[in-house]
Design a protein around this nucleic acid. Structure first.
Length: 802
RNA sequence: GCCCGAGUGGCGGAAUUGGUAGACGCCCGGGACUUAAAAUCCCGUGAGGCUUGCCUCGUACCGGUUCAAGUCCGGUCUCGGGCACCA
């Protein structure tokens, strides 16, 4: 009887919950709480204890809400399209759906073993045709609303995955999946006009209860900047060069123009003398991968041999250059360069010995030969001299509009979303290409367009999907004119299915609609969303975009999907992220066998503050395991030794409830666990002293433990005569007035140094305690002059002496 | 380069937001129980000093404010993460 039989207890209660759901989901009287984990990709490796951190956290919150009288939706599902399953299929010749279902089985078993209150009756799987029918349906709606379009353009291409990537997937010039350097490829692709939502995606961030870090990352990604587009005429040419600038106020300092090497006017603006030079530069610049292009900090460029005119300063001849530090797809792909007030332009001007003209007065102590980018008084700027540059900025914009060479604009870093992939394992894009009618969406009644079986999953480097080989699938008829036509062979990116799955949980089996309005109303939006920070830009931005679109077409009645977001920290081992390649992953399976899942749950929380990364200690679980044993033993020994309530027991109970509740509300889960340990130790000593405890405190402890160690809590509840489930109880309350103690231990200091302690009535005045305090501190006060006495009630008395 | 985090014992981490630094654990050492071990329980555990009870030092570093600073202010360093020529 040394250890409690966790294996049996946990099995028993898991079964009980399965047959008697505790989440009150159908109780319309109760307020709803939708607590969601980011659904996993079911990889072949199974879960490790790092994954569980977020799952345990969301489960604790869900159970806590149940005890607080909410009906709770806490679902789980599978984001199962994507490259790993496909690569596995290529290697082993097994259909991806087969490996997916095997992996799902493993994941599901593991997740069940943490004893989470997942409602498996609403499990979703993005690869299920009944699910992806609606993924395709949303695409069709976007198409009909002009948000999905085809375009030929240079795209991020991953030469290892053999597919195009969205900008979000190619951050830093690396493939998000395989880390290969991304190259550019000219292809016809499906795009989604996420840029049309840029302002809403940016503005609505304000109202979200999300980590500021994530909000900032999204804001940076959207990258809104205010400025102006200005036209510069070219000497001996009718062409104009349009630039985007955020600093139209510095136009008098714009001493040259730089175009991106890809700019369409380059050939035309190149003088014969310079042509060979220019062509060579373009060749070398475009041959560089985007990683190389970004990592080359040294400025390069060539002169085109022609000049532009500064619209406000006739005398200023502006040489026209090309350089690869100007990006072809931001702004207009051309810039006016103000070397005096822009770091990059300055560097370029220095290197190529171009004219630098200061137009904003830098502060007197500003170091020479550096770039002043701040605000100040204008100079060398004609009639704007002496004005403040911010005022001049407005005036120059007005003037440009009046004279017809420019206007105020805003610019975004956000680009439209490249939405097609040349891979097999994804949702087919539901489009038919008809020689007469062009692109035609598949009629809604014909959805889903099923993913056909193929002989080879191998992607090619031609930019064609493996589906292009399946001729009988590809051949179809045009839904409009009925003539022979071909299906679109590209598939959707894996983000498509995850951009709306949180809606489907509300009504997972609906075959008529994505989800019934009434059920969406009942559960959405998600109240609490838990997941890793790695989705800060990708998934979370796409899901917000989808939600706003679905709002616009009347499918949902809210514009933001996730009211509150929490990013759990990573669990590391020996300071490094757990991963298969390093071989430092810890599987929960063996831990559960040895200590039970309640001990593991407690340790996942105890390991550190949930928002920070924490290092896994293999022996750390001993602590929480010993604790649970201690509690179990305590209940065993004391359920028969019941005594009448005493003020001490009452005080302890209220302190206990307060500590756990306040810390839980603050999500300080690691201190919740230490609070349990500390208060339980206090309880054990008190029980020893009193020869027993009251029923009240046993009941309270069982309920407090329920969100954290639910199986044991049920067992304890039963031991003290409870029936049904501990979750039928309300969360205990506490009364601050019962916690206040009449006595207090205060610290005695002399000149701020701790010199003694003293127990006093908590409400005592300084005059009442001073004589005794002086006695204690005699040694330190002797022969000194007291300057000041500082007394903080219940805390400290500091006597300042000279 | 810019933007976030973080820096406290051998280790994970506490500290009521300016009021007794190191809670709660892990590891380690000592003891009890046991034929023995495991389990359990008790004691010790920041560093240094000696008169063994106390003193000095101590929250990355330097300086400041304050009766009082891990906490506030100014500066510096280190580590982790994100972004990175966005005009």
């Amino acid at each position: 009887m040394d250890r409690y039989n966790f294996t049996e207890i946990e099995k028993k209660w898991r079964k009980h919950w399965e047959n008697h759901p505790i989440n009150n989901a159908d109780d319309q009287q109760k307020k709803k709480y939708y607590c969601l984990d980011m659904f996993p990709y079911p990889s072949g490796e199974g879960l490790h204890v790092g994954h569980w951190r977020g799952y345990v956290l969301s489960d604790v919150l869900s159970r806590y809400k149940i005890l607080n009288g909410f009906r709770v939706l806490h679902p789980m599902g599978w984001d199962a399209f994507g490259l790993p399953a496909e690569n596995h299929a290529i290697e082993h010749g097994i259909h991806p759906s087969a490996s997916v279902s095997a992996n799902v089985a493993t994941f599901k078993r593991q997740l069940m073993e943490i004893g989470a209150v997942y409602d498996w009756s609403c499990e979703v799987n993005t690869t299920d045709p009944a699910y992806y029918k609606w993924t395709q349906w949303i695409f069709v709606q976007m198409y009909k609303n002009g948000l999905a379009y085809e375009k030929d353009m240079p795209l991020n291409w991953c030469p290892s995955c053999n597919t195009v990537l969205a900008n979000e997937e190619a951050q830093g010039g690396e493939c998000e999946r395989c880390k290969s350097p991304v190259t550019k490829k000219m292809l016809r692709q499906w795009m989604l006009k996420i840029t049309e939502y840029a302002d809403r995606l940016l503005d609505d961030l304000d109202g979200l209860d999300w980590p500021i870090k994530v909000k900032k990352m999204q804001a940076d990604w959207i990258g809104k900047s205010y400025g102006a587009e200005l036209d510069f005429s070219v000497e001996n040419s009718s062409e104009k060069i349009r630039v985007f600038t955020t600093r139209p106020d510095t136009i008098f300092g714009a001493t040259f123009i730089v175009l991106a090497p890809e700019h369409p006017l380059v050939a035309e603006l190149t003088s014969e003398k310079c042509r060979a030079n220019v062509e060579e530069y373009i060749k070398s610049a475009t041959a560089k991968s985007s990683v190389e292009r970004m990592s080359d900090k040294e400025k390069t460029g060539v002169f085109l041999g022609t000049y532009a005119k500064n619209p406000l300063d006739d005398g200023l001849r502006m040489p026209i250059w090309i350089a690869d530090y100007v990006l072809p797809d931001y702004g207009t792909g051309a810039i006016m360069c103000v070397p005096a007030h822009d770091e990059r332009d300055f560097e370029f001007a220095k290197k190529f010995d171009l004219y630098i003209r200061e137009v904003i007065k830098s502060p007197a102590d500003f170091p020479k030969d550096t770039v002043f980018a701040g605000d100040g008084e204008m100079l060398n700027s004609g009639r704007f001299n002496g004005k403040h540059n911010r005022a001049a900025l407005e005036e120059i914009c007005e003037e440009s509009e009046k004279l017809g060479f420019g206007k105020k604009t805003v610019n975004y870093k956000l680009r439209d979303w490249v939405f097609s992939r040349q891979r097999y394992w994804g949702e087919p894009i539901p489009i038919v290409h008809c020689p007469d009618c062009g692109t035609v969406p598949v009629p809604e009644e014909d959805l889903p367009v099923l993913l056909p079986d193929v002989k080879s999953y191998q992607p090619t480097d031609t930019g064609e999907s493996p589906l292009a080989d399946v001729h009988e699938w590809m051949s179809t008829t045009c839904p409009v004119c009925g003539k022979p036509a071909k299906r679109e062979t590209n598939t959707m990116p894996t983000w498509a299915g995850s951009s709306w799955y949180f809606l489907r949980y509300a009504d997972p089996f609906n075959s008529e609609k994505l989800a019934a309005e009434e059920l969406l109303k009942q559960w959405l939006p998600v109240d609490y969303y838990v997941g890793g920070v790695e989705h800060a830009v990708l998934h979370l931005l796409y899901a917000r975009f989808y939600t706003k679109f679905l709002y616009d077409i009347g499918v949902v009645d809210f514009t933001e999907p996730f009211t509150k977001l929490f990013n759990q920290g990573m669990i590391t081992r020996n300071g490094r992220k757990m991963s298969k390649s390093i071989g430092n992953g810890v599987s929960p399976d063996s831990i559960i066998r040895e200590y039970g899942c309640d001990a593991l749950r407690m340790y996942e929380l105890f390991v550190g503050p949930p928002a920070l990364d924490s290092d896994w200690d293999d022996s750390g679980i001993e602590g929480t395991f010993r604790y649970l044993n201690k509690v179990w033993k305590f209940f065993n020994e004391h359920r028969e030794k019941i005594v009448a309530t005493t003020p001490e027991l009452e005080h302890l109970r209220h302190v206990f409830v307060r500590d756990i509740t306040v810390r839980l509300e603050n999500l300080s889960m690691n201190t919740v666990v230490s609070g349990f340990m500390e208060q339980t130790n206090a309880l054990i000593s008190l029980a020893k002293k009193l020869g027993g405890v009251d029923e009240e405190i046993l009941l309270t402890l069982a309920v407090l433990l329920a969100p954290f160690a639910p199986h044991l809590a049920e067992e304890l509840w039963m031991m003290i005569g409870g029936t049904d489930s501990v979750f039928a109880n309300p969360w205990p309350t506490y009364d601050e007035s019962k916690i206040k103690s009449d006595m207090a231990d205060i610290a005695l200091q002399v000149n701020g140094k701790l010199r003694g302690q003293m127990a006093i009535p908590a409400a005592a005045e300084l005059s009442e305690i001073l004589p005794q305090a002086r006695e204690i501190l005699e040694k330190w006060l002797d022969g000194k002059e007291v300057v000041k006495e500082i007394y903080v009630k219940g805390r400290i008395l500091n006597i300042v002496v000279r």
